[in-house]
Simulated assay, not measured.
Amino acid sequence: MKKVYIIISTYNEEGSVGMLTQSLEENLSTIQNCSYELVFVNDGSKDQTFVKLLDLQKIYQNITIINQSKNFGHELAMTAGMNYAVEQNFENEYAVLFMDADMQHPPEVAAELIRLWLAGDSLVLTKRTDNLDKGFRYKMMGNLYYWILNGISDVKIPRNMPDFRLLDKKYVLWMSSLNEHDRMFRGMLSLIGLTNATIINFEAPKRFAGQSNYNFLNLYKLAIDSVIQFSVKPLRIASLIGFLGCVFSFIFLTVSVYINFTNNEPRTGFLTLLCITVFFSSLTILFLGVIGEYIGRIHIQVKNRPLYFNDVIKKK
């Protein structure tokens, strides 16, 4: 029998996991010829999420808890769940469905993803038509983010397509073969290819409980990771600007010498020299920072450390 592993990453979601589990059980119970397992990845929650999950495991038969030793981040939480599915069911036919625990990924849509997979679709993605929990400013910033990202990245990442998706075994094995420490699932999947994807639209409702765990610093890190993981264009842009800066400096120097000789006016040029020095020194520091980002990630990757540490807790 086919099986679906529903990977649910949770971080401080004590108010949502109970309702999510109940709603998933109601929506998935009508699906025939397919079993499923709810794999909750507790990503170092600081509230009572882990206790709530243990209580739910006593009630429901098909819940597995992956308890991360600390908060490794959303991407690695999904990786931990995906790797668990690979280890458990390597030879049989299965799929992995990723979703969040805040109820903004509707359980009824999750059931629809599974039905499409059973009908023969091997890669089923979702596209968010609206997010009732976010305002106009968030949507504008999101559009700007994707415009910049796809402008300087070698891998094009579709906008408004969250990590709410179902992957057949073939895609799961491809994704698990990518041995990267800094991960962005959307970019990794685009790197593999989306030509055979089926896309269904959905409207994200407001969070059932709690607040979003993504602050400005999290989003900033995600933006930096998105660019650096899939492109070397920032390095090329830095080289181009450096070259143009050298040309500009040469032209400016030539013009300054010409004016001094033709007008016979003694000029110290101190302010001009100071401005140029500060400008190009700032560019140098900026470009060194870009290069440092790449070197830092190489430094971390070559250590080949484990991506995460966790305990897998199954129902006894």
Rank of each mutant, 00 (worst) to 15 (best):
I6Y: 01
I6A: 01
I8D: 05
S9L: 11
S9H: 12
Y11R: 09
E13V: 06
E14F: 09
S16E: 10
S16R: 10
V17C: 08
V17G: 01
G18S: 13
G18I: 13
M19K: 13
L20T: 07
L20S: 01
T21Y: 05
T21L: 06
L24H: 02
E26Q: 12
N27H: 13
L28M: 02
L28C: 06
S29T: 08
S29P: 03
T30S: 13
Q32M: 14
N33C: 10
N33F: 12
C34L: 09
S35N: 14
Y36N: 07
L38H: 01
F40L: 05
F40H: 04
V41F: 02
N42I: 06
D43I: 04
G44W: 00
G44K: 06
K46C: 14
Q48E: 14
T49A: 11
F50S: 07
V51M: 12
V51N: 12
V51A: 14
K52L: 08
K52Y: 10
K52A: 10
L54C: 15
L54E: 15
D55K: 15
D55C: 13
D55G: 13
Q57E: 01
Q57Y: 07
Q61P: 07
N62A: 08
N62S: 07
I63Y: 04
I65F: 01
I66S: 06
N67V: 05
N67G: 07
Q68I: 09
S69L: 10
S69M: 08
S69H: 11
K70T: 09
K70R: 11
N71L: 04
N71C: 10
N71T: 04
N71H: 00
F72P: 02
F72T: 05
F72E: 04
G73Q: 03
H74P: 00
H74E: 12
H74V: 12
L76I: 15
L76W: 10
M78S: 09
M78V: 10
T79G: 00
T79K: 15
T79D: 12
A80T: 07
A80R: 03
A80S: 06
G81W: 03
M82P: 02
V86G: 05
V86A: 07
V86T: 08
Q88L: 14
Q88K: 15
N89T: 14
N89V: 10
N92P: 00
E93D: 15
Y94W: 10
Y94P: 03
A95T: 03
A95M: 11
V96K: 04
V96P: 01
L97S: 06
L97C: 05
L97R: 00
F98W: 07
F98G: 00
F98S: 00
M99W: 03
M99I: 04
M99Y: 03
A101S: 12
A101T: 08
D102P: 02
M103P: 00
Q104K: 14
H105G: 00
H105R: 00
P106L: 01
P106D: 06
P107T: 04
P107W: 05
P107D: 03
E108Q: 13
V109N: 04
V109P: 02
V109S: 01
A110W: 06
A111G: 04
E112Y: 08
R115M: 15
L118C: 02
A119N: 11
A119G: 03
S122T: 14
L123M: 12
V124L: 02
V124F: 07
L125A: 12
L125W: 12
L125Y: 14
L125S: 11
T126A: 09
K127D: 08
K127E: 14
K127H: 15
T129E: 12
T129I: 15
D130C: 10
N131Y: 11
N131C: 12
